[in-house]
């Protein structure tokens, strides 16, 4: 009888420990994800900044827009790491903000098997708009993150 109780308690503890580990699976290690992007800056680009975006997948599609000002005639490299996504999202760049007239899409990330790092080098000046389009899901408690590192290379003298 004692053994039965002991096994019951052990099973109970194991069940809840496993649940706790599963819940943590979606947590993002932003620093590691960001550091993986840094390799793609070399040799020509210098680190400028990064943006970590954390989100919860919900039962409605979400659009998150990130505005990035750029200086004219200089080169920029945006590096993404999708390792923090449990479910794919759309990543797009536009020349104008959401809802603006004649807004043009400049880039759309196309996922390749086994690849986490993606690069986009814009050829516009002034401002660029990065959109994360997060699909709806019926899955509960599903969270993810995107990291975008920006590097610059000054060309003007």
């Amino acid at each position: 009888m004692k053994k039965t109780i002991l096994y019951s308690v052990l099973a109970f503890v194991l069940f809840f420990s496993t649940s706790a580990i599963q819940n943590n699976n979606n947590e993002c290690d932003i620093r590691t994800i960001k550091n993986e992007c840094l390799r793609s800056l070399k040799p020509d680009y210098l680190y400028d900044s990064y943006k970590a975006t954390r989100f919860l997948y919900t039962n409605a599609e979400q659009v998150m827009e990130i505005e990035a000002p750029l200086f004219k005639d200089e080169k920029y490299r945006f590096i993404f790491n999708i390792a923090g996504l449990p479910k794919d999202i759309e990543v797009k760049f536009f020349d104008k903000k959401k809802g603006a007239k004649d807004r043009k899409q400049l880039y759309s990330l196309t996922k390749e098997e086994g690849k986490n790092i993606y690069i986009f080098e814009p050829e516009v000046s002034k401002k660029i708009y990065l959109n994360y389009i997060i699909p709806r899901t019926t899955q509960q408690n599903l969270s993810g993150c995107m990291v975008s590192v920006i590097g610059y290379h000054l060309t003007t003298e």
């Binding site: 900044s49 409605a60 979400q62 990130i66 505005e67």
Partner: peptide, 14 residues
Amino acid sequence: ATDSTNQVDYILPS
């Protein structure tokens, strides 16, 4: 999250 559908964030240069 539904409210944040129109969320806008900013990346400022260094």
